[in-house]
């Protein structure tokens, strides 16, 4: 190990990844810190100021009912980012647990569990996510457990997280398979430690690198998934907004006669900048931790 520099020092020499990390921190800070103002400002409708192009008073312009695109973009960013992070967190928990158990038990059980993952890879996930969002959302609303707005967010996070854990499970299982042949695990076994303790104390800490890399790459996927759902009308519901739903709303209003480019351009720019940055950071981390994933390295 001593011949390899520490992952973080390798990451620090990756310029694209560093710049992207800076962009991400900036985006996150801007969206989260502005939340007290944006969550109120995004709803204020001023019909006398509808469809204004960007100006000094309205830096990002206004939409068709006079709401500030600036505040809507900031607010949408906060929702998009938290949705992405939460969905990735769910994917990490399910994927790591599933992969670690499969790798650790091994044998027929491992075969069966991985066959299930193979099969799930080919599911029409968009269909199932839509079905889950609408039906479970309706059931939760019916039960009056939460308000109408949080329900949609929670359901979307659950649905998107619930279908994004497959790659994670595969990667973690591969890593566990190679870890469990290592002498220190054998030593732990020889000491008679229970399996759960071996798993939690000796295996999981060695998975951190892989988990971080794939979690980073899952966040942009989740944000994109939500934008598709919003475009089809089953994502976040107004008055809430995400970058995806803002872009989808703007795109739907585009026509050759009226072309309010700012309504689409600013949320889209924020969205793609963030997705690019997340992908670059993910790739940078992958190189830094020297992680390979997917079926290719199985």
């Amino acid at each position: 190990m001593s011949t390899h520099p520490h992952p973080w020092s390798r990451f620090r020499h990756d310029r694209a990844a560093l710049v992207s990390a800076g962009v991400l921190v900036f985006m996150l800070a801007a969206c989260v810190l502005s939340l007290p103002w944006s969550s109120a400002g995004m709803r204020v409708q001023r019909l006398d100021q509808a469809r204004q192009a960007p100006s000094l008073q309205q830096p990002f312009g206004t939409d068709e009912v006079g709401r500030s695109v600036l505040w809507r973009t900031f607010y949408g960013g906060a929702i998009s980012l938290s949705l992405g992070v939460l969905a990735a967190a769910i994917a990490v928990v399910i994927g790591t647990a599933y992969g670690a158990v499969a790798g650790l038990i091994g044998g027929r059980c491992d075969d069966l569990m991985m066959r299930i993952v193979d099969l799930l890879y080919a599911l029409p996930t968009l269909l199932l996510v839509m079905l889950f969002t609408v039906s479970v959302g309706a059931a939760l609303e019916h039960a009056h457990l939460l308000g109408r707005e949080p329900v949609r967010l929670v359901v979307l996070v659950l649905a998107i997280g619930g279908v994004s854990w497959l790659t994670m499970a595969r990667v973690v299982r591969g890593q566990v398979l190679s870890l469990r042949e290592q002498p220190f695990i054998e030593a732990a076994r020889a000491l008679g430690l229970p399996t759960t303790r071996i798993l939690l104390r000796h295996i999981v800490p060695n998975l951190i690198g892989h988990v971080i890399v794939f979690a980073t790459l899952t966040v942009p996927q989740a944000i994109l998934q939500e934008s598709f759902l919003s475009f089809l009308g089953v994502g976040i519901q107004p008055p809430q907004a995400t970058w995806g739903s803002l872009a989808a709303d703007g795109v739907r209003q585009m026509n050759p006669v009226r072309f309010d480019w700012w309504v689409v351009a600013f949320p889209c720019a924020a969205l793609s900048l963030t997705l690019l940055a997340l992908n670059f950071v993910g790739d940078g981390l992958r190189d830094a931790f020297d992680v390979r994933g997917g079926r290719a390295s199985q």
């Binding site: 942009p220 598709f228 585009m254 689409v264 969205l271 997705l275």
Partner: peptide, 13 residues
Amino acid sequence: LIGISLPTFVIGT
């Protein structure tokens, strides 16, 4: 980069 960072509906529109 365009392919991974823009939603399909934006590219399409």
